[in-house]
């Protein structure tokens, strides 16, 4: 018998643990946070992922995802 793969992964999104389906890409994850991704940037495991690469970036278990935007400051 082969062991079936897990259907969900646990990743960290802006410091919070989050269950996502296996195969979830970065653009799908960001879409759950905002419908207007203009002015938003994402890093996975402390590396910036350019927006054009979001659809091709599949998340792995234990990935640390940071999704940032501009706020009032300075």
């Amino acid at each position: 018998m082969t062991v079936s793969p897990p259907v969900t992964l646990t990743v960290s999104v802006n410091g919070e643990p989050r269950q996502v389906p296996d195969g979830t890409t970065l653009d799908q994850l960001v879409a759950t946070l905002t419908t207007a991704p203009g002015g938003v940037a994402a890093a996975v495991n402390e590396a910036v992922v350019p927006r054009g690469q979001w659809p091709a970036t599949a998340l792995s278990a234990e990935d640390r995802v940071e999704v940032l935007t501009a706020v009032q400051g300075g």
């Binding site: 802006n14 410091g15 946070l33 935007t69 501009a70 009032q72």
Partner: peptide, 29 residues
């Protein structure tokens, strides 16, 4: 200037739209 912070889906209104409307160059810190 603006600061970069974690996206909060509950926050309404954006400082970026204000700067964009006024034609002011944004300087992230």
């Amino acid at each position: 200037t603006v600061a970069m912070r974690r996206l909060n889906p509950r926050v309404q209104g954006s400082v970026l739209s204000v700067l964009d409307r006024l034609g002011i160059q944004v300087l992230p810190n």
